[in-house]
Design a protein around this nucleic acid. Structure first.
Lengths: 101, 101
DNA sequence: CATTTTAATCGTAAAATTACGATTAATCTT
DNA sequence: AAGATTAATCGTAATTTTACGATTAAAATG
């Protein structure tokens, strides 16, 4: 890899769309978001029960969704409650809608 | 990596959504699709001029978009005309719309 | 028929992604 | 205070992605 994405000029909307899309680009993360969207919020533990993958892997996926801005975590010791980030969800919704017409 | 996606049961819509999303998960591919969608079709060469990356890399991205079903190629020797696959574009549009509300 | 044009494919390298188990940190319970 | 619970982080390995230049195949042009 000789060049990084940062060297190239893309429109901000292309970058934003690609970032959201990348986060949605794995079925596990889609399932997480589906579950989260259905009941608005849930704990990591709920997802560990729901999905047949390791707890650490789910944490990793949650981190990616968080980094993309699609979810946010709220401390409810000793648990962590994850919720859809409605502001960015809406932003993504509009971006995809506009892009796909 | 001890487990592959294939071992896990996902809903078909999650897989379809993730597949489309993954294809949209790179700004270069988003730019390609934007350009393609604007004028409906174009040749590989147009994209090579448009984007500051190697021809082989663009071919690779086109292949991915084709594999995801978002575009299709038509032989216009010695060129190849790429167009949005409207059927699947519509499918993606509905999937994302439904998913993001 | 030789040359040029077009775009895919090959070979390769660097980086990112995905997965796991083990460990850790924080908080709650006894 | 000791132990249990929860979920992030660490370390690691396999795989995939992204990028490049070089080569190849197919068709058009001279």
């Amino acid at each position: 890899m000789k060049r990084t994405v940062k060297d190239i000029e893309y429109t901000q909307s292309s970058i934003d769309l690609a970032t959201f899309a990348k986060a949605l680009g794995h079925p596990t993360r889609v399932e997480i978001l589906k579950h989260l969207n259905k009941q608005s919020c849930c704990f990591t533990g709920d997802l560990v029960e729901l999905l047949p993958i390791a707890q650490s892997t789910i944490s990793q996926h949650l981190k990616e969704l968080k980094n993309a801005g699609l979810i946010q975590g709220e401390l409810k010791p000793p648990k962590i409650k994850y919720c859809i980030n409605r502001k960015n969800w809406k932003k993504a919704s509009l971006l995809f809608k506009d892009f796909l017409e």
